[in-house]
Write a protein that binds this DNA or RNA. Structure first.
Lengths: 214, 214
DNA sequence: TAGATTGTTAATCGATTAACAATC
DNA sequence: TAGATTGTTAATCGATTAACAATC
């Protein structure tokens, strides 16, 4: 068992559920709730209480029998595990429909992310500001990412450009790519790639519809 | 085993991979490729060939030993299974950042979806056209969805409005909701809900980054 | 104390992978 | 025919759920 294996200890499905707990807990905290039990969280989200307990344990939190978890502690524990206690600077490449939308999300900073600059190949977009973020020429990305030690790249270019931009990100020292293109990127093993596949999601929806209509 | 169970026969992970095969196959077809083997598809996407075979079998396709699958047949089989041979009309509610982006996607029709109208609560947006789609007042949604027998609703409203709009969609006869809000919607069991959880995806990315930096 | 809740071990379930016979 | 490929059964792996002891 090497280091990478042991880090992977947390099941991916658990990690995916953590933001849901976090959102609920933040709401509860503003309502002044001091402690919360697994049963309560489970009921609100439609999970089983055992699953909630397993998920939360991933973050290292320790609860109190008969009481539950201290809301504040649990929030901190989840945020810490996800790296959302601080935020990391990120570059966004490709200011099309999706890129534009993401630049407008103003609560990424509550989710560990801070988009500091955007890039596009279209000369007409360069120099403009979108949602308070300046758009630079694509060929400036390499230099700036290297200089600013950017670790996260958000890839929202058309499919045809995805692989070449991804490769450039890797060369510039970017270590994690949030990929919104439908392309299976080829990058070194050390690079973290997380794909957002809208069409996979749509496929689940339409196939269910198609197969219940019969 | 009832009807619902037998329909659910296809594993969800397989369904999620089908659009990836489809995209690749469509590319191959334009390049004039008549037949394709599992091994080839597997290599291109980084899967095992057994997995590809199992996934494709879900759609009912039958291959030819020594040859593989006829590209055209396989494309048709996947499209048919996903319900992407035709497209269904859909309403989009909430023309904010994400709503705007989705209205701009012009290849949804290749993926079974046709957005025919958009709705928003903001009076300033009403009557305008976004990407050739007219924006109506939110309170017109119910009547129009019922009248046009709309089956699919795309939910891109802010979190606070998500549940109430979803409930209204259900009352209007909408049978499947593509939910982009981070809310766990409460709807009858018969309604199909497919959630796009951006923050789940981001959590996987940042947690990996946080846990490899240590 | 009694009862609610956590933490953990064991059992179940489902998806992936391996092995191999059937086929053209 | 020989070899590549499919289709299918069995083995493995990982996540979820059930059961229950420990705890305040």
């Amino acid at each position: 068992m090497n280091t990478t294996d042991s880090i992977k200890g947390a099941p991916l499905p658990s990690i995916r559920r953590l933001p849901q707990y976090l959102q609920l807990l933040r709401q509860m905290q503003t309502k002044g709730r001091i402690a919360v039990s697994c049963t309560h969280l489970a009921d609100d989200l439609g999970f089983t209480s055992t699953q909630v307990r397993k998920d939360l344990a991933v973050t290292g939190i320790i609860g109190k029998p008969k009481v539950g978890y201290i809301t504040e502690e649990l929030i901190a524990s989840i945020e810490n595990f996800l790296g959302w206690n601080n935020y990391s600077d990120a570059f966004l490449v490709g200011v099309g429909n999706m890129g534009n939308a993401l630049l407008g999300y103003d609560d990424f900073r509550l989710h560990g992310l801070n988009i500091v600059a955007a890039f596009d190949a279209n000369p007409e977009k360069i120099g403009k500001n979108v949602h308070n973020c300046e758009i630079f020429a694509l060929d400036k990305m390499y230099e700036l990412a290297e200089r600013m030690h950017i670790q996260i790249g958000i890839l929202t270019v058309p499919a045809a450009a995805a692989q070449s931009v991804a490769s450039e990100m890797v060369l510039a020292g970017i270590r994690a790519i949030w990929n919104f293109s439908p392309i299976a990127l080829e990058v070194p093993d050390s690079i973290i790639v997380e794909n957002v596949r809208l069409y996979s999601s749509l496929a689940v929806l339409t196939s269910r519809l198609a197969n219940t209509n019969k």
